[in-house]
């Protein structure tokens, strides 16, 4: 029952991913390892497509993964699985809005959750680095994909320090990287 399994996996992701879209990444990597729905390299492509298309990135990734593993019904089921815990939790919280925000146990739990969530996204980032910047199966200096490292360095400067480009939308950098990759044969 692929649909039941998709719903369950994305329900879990929606329930435990705290801090928005990118926080779903560690759960998706976990899925890539445990199922044969998609590989880690495909997942990196999905992140790019999700960033470059309209819609919240977490929802886009759920739709994409669902589509790859179960066609159009899979996409619908995965997306519904992702949003169901949100609907339940928010409807409950809305009933006790004030007391939820001021509750010291809730605040204390999130004091611990936020750094852990950040760390899990960082760990997912390390995996993407391994796929994007290293050559599989090589050793020593040949292991490093120098063209990719150079592009990463340029992108880092453009997105963080160059004041004319850092306000640009991520879609601009994604498209430019695609063109550079195609032209320089990454």
């Amino acid at each position: 029952m692929i649909y039941l399994q998709l719903f369950y996996e994305f329900f879990k992701t929606g329930l435990f991913a705290v801090g928005g879209g990118m926080a779903t990444l560690p759960f998706l990597y976990d899925m890539a390892d445990r199922t044969d729905w998609f590989t880690r390299a495909e997942l990196a492509n999905m992140v790019a497509v999700s960033e470059a298309t309209p819609g919240p990135i977490g929802v886009n990734m759920a739709t994409y993964v669902g589509y790859l593993s179960g066609g159009i019904p899979g996409a619908v089921v995965a997306t519904l699985g992702l949003v169901t815990p949100s609907i339940i939790v928010i409807l409950l919280v809305a009933a006790f809005l004030k007391s939820f925000r001021d509750n010291r146990y809730v605040n204390a739990a999130f004091y611990g959750l936020r750094p852990a969530s950040t760390a899990m996204v960082a760990a997912a980032g390390v995996t993407v680095v391994a796929v994007a910047l290293l050559n599989e199966g090589a050793t020593g200096l040949a292991m490093v994909n120098w063209k990719a490292v150079a592009l990463a360095a340029v992108l880092l400067v453009l997105t963080r320090w160059c004041k004319w480009t850092k306000k640009l939308h991520p879609i601009a950098f994604i498209l430019a990287s695609g063109v550079v990759g195609a032209l320089l044969q990454f």
Partner: peptide, 29 residues
């Protein structure tokens, strides 16, 4: 050429995730 383009895009995804982590870090740690 599509595969090459996606290899380039994956490099961009690294940088985007790195930037997202820095942003999360500021409010978390």
């Amino acid at each position: 050429w599509v595969q090459h383009a996606f290899a380039g895009i994956r490099v961009c995804v690294c940088v985007l995730i790195f930037n997202a982590v820095l942003k999360l870090w500021k409010s978390a740690v």
